[in-house]
Amino acid sequence: MNEKFSTTLNQYLTFTLDKELYAMDIAKVREVLEYTDITRVPRTPDFLRGVINVRGRAVPVVDMRLKFGMTRTEETVNTCIIIVEVDVDGENTILGALADSVQEVFDLEPDQIEPAPRLGTRIKTEFIEGMGKNGEQFIIILNIDKIFSAEELAIVKDVEETA
Rank of each mutant, 00 (worst) to 15 (best):
M1Y: 08
M1S: 15
K4P: 03
L13K: 03
T14L: 13
T16H: 11
D18T: 04
D18Q: 06
E20F: 03
L21A: 08
Y22F: 15
Y22R: 08
A23Y: 05
M24T: 01
M24K: 02
L33K: 12
D37Q: 13
I38W: 14
T39F: 12
R40V: 12
P42N: 10
R43M: 02
T44N: 04
D46R: 13
D46M: 12
L48R: 07
G50Q: 07
G50L: 12
I52N: 14
R57D: 09
A58C: 11
A58F: 14
P60K: 10
L66W: 11
K67C: 02
K67Q: 13
F68V: 10
G69M: 11
V77I: 11
T79L: 03
T79R: 06
I83N: 09
V84D: 03
V86G: 03
D89K: 14
I94L: 11
L95Y: 06
G96L: 09
L98E: 13
A99V: 15
A99S: 08
D100L: 06
S101R: 12
S101W: 09
D107F: 10
E109H: 13
P110M: 06
Q112Y: 09
Q112E: 15
P115E: 14
P117A: 05
G120P: 07
G120L: 06
T121N: 08
T121A: 03
I123P: 02
T125C: 08
M131G: 06
K133G: 04
N134G: 00
N134P: 01
G135P: 04
E136C: 01
E136H: 04
E136P: 06
I139Q: 02
I141S: 01
N143W: 01
N143F: 00
D145I: 00
D145F: 04
S149I: 05
A150L: 11
L153N: 01
I155R: 00
I155V: 12
V156C: 05
V156P: 01
K157Q: 14
V159T: 04
A163N: 10
